[in-house]
Simulated scan of single mutants.
Amino acid sequence: MTESTTVTRRPGLARLRAWPHRHPVAADAVLTAVAALFVLTRGDRFEHLPGERPWWVLLAVLLVVPLVWRRRAPLLVFGWMAAVAAVQWFFARALVADAALLIALYSVAVHCGRKVALWALGVIEFGIAIAILKWAPPAGMLDAFVFLSGLATAAFVLGRNVRTRRAYLASLEDRARRAEHERDQQAQLAAAAERARIAREMHDIVAHNLSVMIALADGAAFAARGNPDEAETAARQVSDTGRQALGEMHRLLGVLRGGQETPRAPQPGIEQLDELVAQVRAAGLPVSLTVAGPAFPLSPTAQLAVYRLVQEALTNVLKHADSPEQAWVRLRYRDPVVEVEVGDDGHGRPMASAVDGHGLSGMAERAAMFDGQIEAGPRPGGGWRVHAELVSRRVAPA
């Protein structure tokens, strides 16, 4: 029979064991009532007090009743009971109710520190010693001391073990809570990073393709009267660009949906730079692509970063450059660095949105993923220049 089956078949026992922890005051009240009932009904068989019965009843009540507060004020309860026992030692004989001191010692051992608990054990041992010297017969002193000291030591050790076990369980619960909290934090950070990644992708796709479509549409409108064939070609390029943007949007939305099967297309990389440059040329901006240095393998993630950097930089040229005559893309391999440069020869400075918008911050984030850096600013001879470096040690070979 497994443990889970045992617990399932004995739910009443589990509830009974948990009841004292859920209702400590009520549990201590029941314990006190049982102890008082035993002392008052059976104690007269063991007590040998001179005088009237009410005196030993009063001492028994003063020893037993404080147990109700043993959890809330264990040290105070123990001190009170020790004081009552001292009065008893001066004026009476041993009582069955003295066993309540063992419960008080156990409570101190559970709820107080080690030094306080040892002090309480020392008080009990001292009380045992003087009680034996006064009340025990000479022939049985040693046996009585060993027996009573054993009871006191057992109460002390049991209390300390319970305290240690509770502290261990509390530490496990605290570690579990902290692990759960850290797991939630990691999940939130991962979700935020994924949202930022998708936002960058959305920005790059939408901004670039819309900029190209606007440039093509303007060119088609200009050429519609004088050159219908050229206008038709520009309109077809607008349509192709829109379909490409729509396809990439569907791919991203498929990732967001998660559970649905969507056609998977490879991510754009360095091999697609020629198509990107051709698309920008079709929008009316002459662009050249130059690759220098011995090429070395780059991971798909690194290639995507390079592609998006070039795409965003060319998009900014289309959107913000002032009458550029040409633009250029230069890709240089300098092991262990991949260098990307995009520039134009436009006049004046770009609009503020090109500098302070999300595009350049997204490029900086992509470069930072590969321990790289990015520089963007006006060229001395006019126009704008974006320069980025990616460190290849963060790039796994293909």
Results as ranks from 00 to 15, higher is better:
Ala193Asp: 15
Gly51Ile: 03
Gln186Met: 11
Glu232Trp: 05
Leu76Thr: 14
Glu389Arg: 04
Leu49His: 07
Asp28Leu: 15
Val287Gln: 04
Thr290Phe: 04
Leu189Glu: 13
Ile214Asp: 08
Gly259Phe: 08
Ala283Gln: 05
His208Arg: 03
Val287Asp: 01
Gly12Cys: 03
Ala321Ser: 12
Leu158Asp: 07
Pro138Gly: 13
Val39Arg: 00
Val386Ala: 09
Thr290Trp: 02
Pro268Met: 08
Thr153Arg: 07
Ser361Ala: 15
Ala190Asp: 15
Leu314Ile: 04
Glu232Thr: 14
Leu276Ile: 11
Arg251Trp: 05
Leu133His: 13
Val337Tyr: 11
Val146Pro: 00
Val340Ala: 11
Asn209Phe: 13
Val386Leu: 14
Glu365Ser: 09
Thr32Glu: 07
Asp98Ser: 08
Met351Glu: 10
Ala388Glu: 01
Ala117Gly: 07
Val238Asp: 01
Arg281Ala: 04
Ala191His: 08
Ala388Asn: 03
Leu304Glu: 07
Glu180Gly: 09
Thr164His: 13
Pro263Asp: 08
Arg366Ile: 12
Val77Gly: 02
Pro24Ala: 13
Phe156Pro: 01
Lys319Leu: 13
Gly359Arg: 02
Arg93Lys: 06
Asp322Thr: 15
His347Asp: 12
Met81Ile: 02
Asp44Trp: 09
Ala18Lys: 03
Gly122Gln: 04
Val255His: 14
Asp204Ser: 14
Glu365Cys: 02
Ala327Phe: 01
Val116Glu: 11
Val30Glu: 03
Asp184Tyr: 12
Arg45Gly: 15
Ala235Thr: 11
Ala376Asn: 06
Val337Pro: 01
Ala192Gln: 14
Asp204Phe: 09
Glu248Ala: 14
Thr8Gly: 13
Met1Ala: 11
Arg166Phe: 06
His208Lys: 01
Val96Trp: 02
Phe126Trp: 08
Ala154Leu: 11
Arg15Cys: 04
Gly226Cys: 09
Thr290Arg: 08
Ala120Ile: 02
Phe222His: 15
Arg281Leu: 04
Trp80His: 10
His23Cys: 03
Asp356Trp: 03
Gly258Val: 02
Arg70Gly: 00
Arg332Glu: 11
Val110Asp: 00
